[in-house]
Every structure is written in structure tokens, then in C-alpha cells.
Design a protein around this nucleic acid. Structure first.
Lengths: 225, 225
DNA sequence: AGATTTCTTGACGAATCCTTAACGCCATGA
DNA sequence: TCATGGCGTTAAGGATTCGTCAAGAAATCT
């Protein structure tokens, strides 16, 4: 189910929110400062982030800006500050909604639903990709090659997923690195070389002479069906 | 530019909002009741709808539900009612945001920007350039010439990208050199000669007699579709 | 806690790309 | 006619990037 990331420095609020959200059927992940919030967002796919602006280690808008460097997940801001300049600042930094404390739980949940409703749309449709040497079901995360199932590690999946959802499109090394490892790793092209080799060994008929996972020297990689 | 549809039964508010929004560079369309609002939304592409809940002819949530039957455009609700049940109702009917009157104009504008930011994404620009001898998809970075894919090196692509995004426009050698190699190389016209020759060999039917990648002696180069 | 899988890191030859220089062509003007 | 300057073409070296392998660290599972 959808995973919500709750970020607040007050453990009471975090626990109360977590209980409420779990009661609604969401999966909940928590953080109590900006650094761990960013880390948590990079670890797993998050559907919506609920962010308190008053964090101990860094400014709330700084968290938003840092996240927006590499992610477009919806952000719902909680804040005790009613000043309109705070709202404008947070929204323009990249937040999607802003509620002031104290707030009604039912309103929070309704706004959450509104954000989730939008973020569901784009996926679907392209669920299964077929080539001459392998078949991938992107939703079930299942790969078949000549009748046999192929297992992928999490990192391998992330890379493959990006490439397969953009057939024929050149994906920059930077894009791949920031999407999979985060913006701090944008120059570690080693990783890509290692993982592309593994993907080819698992998927291509002739790993040394790939026909679907193509290298564009100096630029990036491309999936050709 | 983006078109905003303002719906409110109070003409004063409509006019005030319209003036403010136009001042921000938006195009504004107005309506004072639910029926004409739905009609206006059907007439033209609307980027965001700002909707007052207290309309004379029909309930505000009814307008939202009716609109959501066929459109997914972002809706920002204005309302004098502070009750959380009103908010939940409107948001669950399909609204994307909810502000209670009285509201700060700068907050309204910030929330508007947040909604617009999200709705821009899906319109992936179809940047594909076609000529009599080759086809280029600038988004995918893919080039086709008589059915076959053509590969480009990073430098070749940088030059081609600049020329193709400015059809019929003369690009000086300085511009190309500074964009691709940096300002320190602004006088190394050798590079351009070498790379233009390679581009022509890969793209033109008669590389010695180019029809699309034209030299303007003493000045620069020009792409002619 | 131990075992297994996964991730990170470094090094090397091979492949690719960039730079540079040399030469021929053509138009212009002395 | 010849000299000059800008442009096109080609080829070779040196620099960069890529594929591959292996081994230790970290994370995950049992």
C-alpha cells in the first residue's frame, strides 16, 4: 500500500500521526530531523511526505529544496507559523500543500487523499515489456528469459525500471545515478558500469554484444526493444 | 500563457482576482455561477480553476463532481466556511486545495503556483525535427536516417542540438564554441570545421553539397529544415 | 550469530572520443 | 598569375571512458 513519510521533531505528534495513518491503511515511515528524512526518502518509494517545518537540524524549506533536487514526491507541510510569508516560502520551495497547527485530523486526511489521488495517475498502462530475449512485467516485478524466472537485486531493478519505462530514450548517467543513488552520487559512473554489466549478463543473449541495453559512449544508456 | 478560470458569485471578488492574476501574467476567464463555470471549462483549455463554494445555482461540491466526470484540471477552492466537514467534502469530491476567506493574496498565488507546477509535467514537449534526409527526436536523443539509427558522440550531439533548436537561425561560430567547449575556446574555429564535416557525413545525403547544415562564410552555421 | 546476498571499490586492457596538424579546394584581390 | 584566407577533409596520437573481474565491506536473511 502507499507509504507515508512523517517528519516532525515532536515524538508525540509523530506517534499520534503514525497511529492514525496506519488506521487508514497506510504504511508509515518516520523521521525526526531533516537529514534522516532525506535519507528515508532515498531508501524507499514514498507516496507522500508530511513535513513539519520546525526541525532541529535544518530549516524546513531547506529540506524541501534538497528533496526537490532529485524527487518530485508530494509534500504536505505542517507548521505552527501562520504567517503568510512562511507559507509562500515553503510552497515556492516545492511543497504541495500547507496546513497550520492546530489542524483537524479529518482535514489532514482529506488533503492527503487529494495529494495521493494526483500521484497515482501517471503509472499504469505500460506494465509489460517484451523483447526478443526477455519479458518483463513492470508491475509484478517479474522477469522471464527463455521460460525461466530471472531474479534482480533492488538496485538492478531500479536501473532496469527507469530504462524500460523510457524505451528508445537516452537516459543520462547523471539521471540514472541521481534517481537510483541520490544526487550525491552523480559522478560515480563506476557503479553504472558494474550494474549495466550485471544486467546484460542476466538479460542479454550475448552479454558481450548487447542488443537491448545499449551504451551511448560519453552520454548514457538506452533500452531498445 | 496559462489560463485561470475564476468562479465566484460576488462580482467584486471576481474583478479583484482577475486584475491580480492578469498582473501576474496569467490569462483570466470568469464565471459567476456553476453552469457557466462548467461551460467555460469545456470551451477552452484551463490550467487551474479557482472556485468559490457559495454559488447561487448549485452547490460547490456539485460543480466539482460534475467537472471531474470528464476533466482532471486542478481545482483550488475558496470558501467562507471554516468547518472541517466542508473542506473534507470538497477535497474528497475532487478539489486539490482549499483556502478559507479571508485569505492572503500572496498565499493564494503561491498555492496557485504549486498547482501549476504539477500540471505542467505531463505535457512532454514533442521535440522532433524532420527533414528530407533525416529525423531527430530531441527528447529521446535519437536520430534516424533512411530507417537506420545514427549514433552521435557527445560533442556532435551538443552542436547538433543547438542548431536544431534554432531552425533557420544563424548561429555564429563564437556562440557554438562557447556553448560547447566553453568561452576559452571561442577562437578555435578548427574544431567546428572538423565536427561540422562529421555531422554532414552522418546526416546529409550529399555531404559535399549540404542542404540542411549550411555554412555562412565568415559568420557561422545555420540549420535549414 | 552465522550464512548468504548485495553493494562498494579498485585496477586493468580495450574501445571510443577529442585534439591537433597537415593538405587541398575555392574565392577574392593584388 | 599568384598570394591569401577561410573552409572542408583526412588521419594519427593521446586522453578519456567503458567493460570486466575480483575481493572486501555492508546489509539482509535464517
Amino acid at each position: 500500500m502507499n507509504t507515508i513519510l512523517v517528519v516532525d521533531d515532536d515524538p508525540h505528534i509523530v506517534r499520534a500521526l503514525a497511529i492514525t495513518l496506519k488506521g487508514q491503511g497506510y504504511t508509515v515511515v518516520t523521521a525526526t530531523d531533516g537529514q534522516s528524512a532525506l535519507h528515508a526518502a532515498a531508501q524507499q518509494p514514498i507516496a507522500v511526505m508530511i513535513l513539519d517545518l520546525g526541525l532541529p537540524d535544518m530549516d524546513g524549506t531547506a529540506v524541501i529544496s534538497a528533496l526537490r533536487e532529485w524527487s518530485s514526491l508530494p509534500i504536505l507541510v505542517l507548521s505552527a507559523r501562520h504567517g503568510s510569508s512562511d507559507k509562500v516560502e515553503a510552497l515556492d520551495a516545492g511543497a504541495d500543500d500547507y496546513i497550520t497547527k492546530p489542524f483537524g485530523l479529518d482535514e489532514l486526511l482529506a488533503r492527503l487523499r487529494a495529494l495521493l489521488r494526483r500521484s497515482i495517475e501517471p503509472s499504469e498502462e505500460v506494465t509489460t515489456v517484451e523483447t526478443s530475449s526477455f519479458t518483463v512485467d513492470l508491475n509484478k516485478r517479474q522477469i522471464t528469459k527463455s521460460g525461466l524466472d530471472v531474479r534482480m537485486t533492488p538496485t538492478e531493478w531500479n536501473i532496469l525500471d527507469i530504462l524500460l519505462r523510457n524505451p528508445d530514450k537516452l537516459i543520462t548517467q547523471q539521471q540514472l545515478l541521481t534517481e537510483v543513488w541520490g544526487p550525491a552520487y552523480a559522478k560515480e559512473a563506476n557503479y553504472l558500469r558494474v550494474y549495466m554489466a550485471q544486467l546484460r549478463r542476466k538479460l542479454e543473449n550475448e552479454p558481450g554484444n548487447p542488443r537491448h541495453l545499449i551504451t551511448e559512449p560519453g552520454m548514457g544508456y538506452r533500452f531498445v526493444p
